[in-house]
Nucleic acid binder design. Structure first.
Length: 490
RNA sequence: CGGGGUGUAGCGUAGCCCGGUAUCGCGCCACAUUUGGGAUGUGGAGGUCGUAGGUUCGAAUCCUGCCACCCCGACCA
């Protein structure tokens, strides 16, 4: 592993790339801009999925599945939605290949589709086309549906996990009888995302609203959670949209209320993707490799035996398997790495690279003394512990690590969040270590655009519960009522 | 799509200017000694030099077309 964050000897993105590949999370595929998620990476994603899925279900949502293909005509219906996605859609135009004597396998020109199919970049259109048939009365509402799926966005430039052509995500699509209820749902899901990020990923986030410029295509309001990566760049980790009646109007979805009057349905959509994997990697890792929060680590404890002979291994295995059993009874996932093909030092380095939170080493010395050596990944501290109550000690250690990783990230976010009132300072901060910058903005799209052109920084969000404060726009000097959060972002 | 660059073993590379069938490291396989922080030695396997054509007695090397990838820009809620 080359030096990256702590030493800044190499480019951060190169370091990130190398880490993702070496830690066995994912690799580039032969398909442009796509990636292969390897078993270890996927097992982390599965853990995330399981937690999120439960949170969704606990708030009354159900899973469903809609088609991958969307007829092109569906995209005509919501104007701003098309505009937002048209430039990055993969389109299916034919349904058959044939063998050409000269050119080999070619697309059969006779198999052209009457209407092209868009590979979903997101599913609002096909879902709202379906909801039209599902909703007639206020009794049919609300509809609270989530879908786990893959989507395709033909981005010009891709990066493992952060922006891939195809990615996995969940998209929630709800329909409500009133604007208030839809707004409440939008905010509820934002809170769930924030809770997931902070409690499970140990990733502190800023909850906020997007500016009109940065809103989801077709939304009246977009809320987001923004996280800060260790190189000082921001990452949008999740979004929740209040769609108003835009999609209901576009797809003619009406319900009859108690009063017998027809009204358009109110909508929300919300999503998080495998981008969260990228966030997890970038937020906590060090030069030794991944640092996984215990609550999401597929392997929470690894036991490495240290031995010289078969007999010694047999003796150590007894103790190791006993510890494994005790830990597993507390719901802790344990890997006993008894491979005889690798030496201990190699295993230590390998599991550190993969971010396993706790390592237990057992050797002949320990057998004599009834101890084990316990090393924690986050601080790399080692200590020798007595075997008695080992499971309880490890359980507490895991909790401690989870908390410590979060505090470290929180501290990083706080010390890299600045306030400034001058343009010079603003640029200086951005060109320095980056971070979030709270600054005044005159509220116009033109100024926002201009700041972006001049500084490459965008308004990440207008934080919720933002204190009102009189000030002058950092660029134009025009009056402003509150600070907004700027950063360079992924 | 513009500007620049690169394609040589699973990975990273030397060789290219100045043509003679390919260098080194990691990894892999076997054996031995090792095993409390990424072992060492000896031996071995592995290559359509991105691709198609041209020049030549002979092409990784020179020429032309094509393809792929990377970086910068455009683009990206």
């Amino acid at each position: 592993m080359s030096k990256g964050i702590t030493s800044r000897e190499t480019d951060y993105s190169q370091w990130y790339n190398e880490l993702v590949i070496k830690a066995d999370l994912a690799e580039h595929s032969d398909v442009r801009g796509c990636m292969i998620i390897k078993p270890y990476g996927y097992s982390i994603w599965e853990k995330m999925q399981a937690v999120l899925d439960k949170m969704f279900k606990d708030t009354g949502h159900q899973n469903a599945y809609f088609p991958l293909f969307i007829p092109k005509s569906f995209f005509n219906k919501e104007a701003s939605h098309v505009e937002g996605f048209a430039k990055e859609c993969a389109v299916v135009t034919h349904y058959r290949l044939k063998n050409d004597p000269e050119k080999g396998i070619i697309v059969d020109p006779d198999a052209k589709l009457e209407e092209e199919l868009i590979i979903r970049p997101t599913s609002e259109t096909i879902i709202w086309n379906t909801y039209r048939n599902w909703i007639q009365s206020y009794r049919d509402l609300p509809i609270l549906i989530n879908q786990w799926a893959n989507v395709v966005r033909w981005e010009m430039r891709t990066r493992l996990f952060l922006r891939t052509t195809e990615f996995l995500w969940q998209e929630g699509h709800t329909a409500h009888a009133s604007a208030e209820e839809a707004l409440t749902e939008t905010r509820q899901m934002l809170d769930i995302y924030a809770e997931f990020a902070e409690k499970w990923m140990a990733l502190p986030v800023v909850k906020g609203a997007k500016t009109p410029n940065e809103r989801f295509a077709g939304a009246l309001d977009t809320f987001c959670i923004e996280a800060l990566m260790q190189d000082g760049k921001a990452l949008q980790a999740g979004t929740s949209h209040f769609l108003g009646q835009n999609f209901a109007k576009a797809f003619d979805v009406k319900y009859v209320g108690k009063d017998g009057k027809q009204e358009y349905v109110w909508a929300t959509s919300w999503g998080v993707s495998t981008r969260l994997m990228g966030a997890l990697v970038m937020a906590h890792s060090d030069d030794e490799g991944l640092v996984l929060p215990p609550k999401l680590a597929p392997i929470q404890v690894v036991i490495v035996p240290i031995y010289k002979s078969e007999e010694e291994l047999a003796e150590i295995s007894k103790t190791a398997l006993q510890i494994k059993k005790e830990l597993e009874s507390k719901g802790i996932s344990v890997k006993f790495d008894n491979r005889d093909t690798q030496r201990p030092g190699f295993k230590f380095a390998e599991w550190e690279l993969k971010g396993v939170p706790v390592r237990i080493a057992i050797g002949p010395r320990d057998l004599e003394q009834g101890t084990v050596e316990v090393a924690r990944r986050d601080t790399k501290e080692k200590s020798v512990l007595q075997l008695v109550d080992i499971a309880i000690k490890i359980e507490h250690l895991l909790e401690n690590i989870q908390e410590n990783i979060y505090k470290k990230a929180l501290n990083f976010k706080d010390t890299n969040t600045y306030k400034t009132d001058t343009w010079d300072d603003f640029i200086k901060l951005l060109d320095g270590d980056g971070g979030f910058i709270a600054a005044h903005w005159d509220g116009t799209a033109e100024t926002e655009e201009k700041i972006k052109d001049l500084s490459k920084a965008t308004i990440r969000c207008i934080p919720l519960n933002n204190p009102k404060e009189e000030g002058k726009c950092i660029l134009t000097g025009k009056p402003s009522q509150q600070r907004v959060l700027f950063a360079r972002a992924y």
